[in-house]
């Protein structure tokens, strides 16, 4: 029986820039930052209240994973906003929206009431987008 997820990966265009976005703008914590050789780095971050979920910020480089033109194609798709990677949760959507906007985070959709609750959509520095909701019990 599968019980939990502890690692998930997000493909980013530049790991230094992604570090700045996820750590300094979103407020995530660095879990592991390891050099794996020249131009190769294993970088994972966690949402502040979810230290056991490592989000791997994976660089898109030509190599074993992306062969031939695949890396360039993947970079284009990421930068064009092809991928929506998940849903983040916060205590208070309006406050978080205002804070992230003040820090320069780009929103595709401001907090909006949907049939399932309030939701906003934001993009990371590479072009990946995420939904942002708030705790269900928040009044």
């Amino acid at each position: 029986m599968i019980t939990r997820m502890n690692h998930v990966s997000i493909f980013v265009l530049d790991q230094d820039s992604a570090y700045d976005f996820y750590v300094n703008k979103l407020g995530f914590k660095v879990h592991t930052d390891a050099s794996m050789g020249p131009d190769m780095r294993w970088l994972t971050v966690c949402p502040p209240e979810q230290p056991d979920l490592e989000i791997s910020l994976m660089s898109i480089q030509e190599g074993m994973m992306f062969k031939g033109d695949a890396a360039a194609q993947m970079r284009t798709m990421v930068s064009e906003g092809t991928f929506g990677f998940g849903v983040f949760e916060c205590n208070d959507l309006m406050a978080t929206y205002e804070e992230l906007k003040a820090k320069g985070v780009e929103f595709k959709k401001p907090p909006t009431k949907e049939f399932y609750g309030y939701e906003a959509l934001f993009k990371d520095d590479s072009g990946n987008w995420f939904s942002l909701g708030q705790k269900k019990d928040k009044k």
Binding site: H7, S9, A34, M36, G37, M40, W42, G63, M64, M65
Partner: peptide, 11 residues
């Protein structure tokens, strides 16, 4: 690094 990621990257 979990093996699935490490082997995919050749590490």
């Amino acid at each position: 690094v979990p093996n699935c990621f490490a082997s995919q990257q050749g590490w």
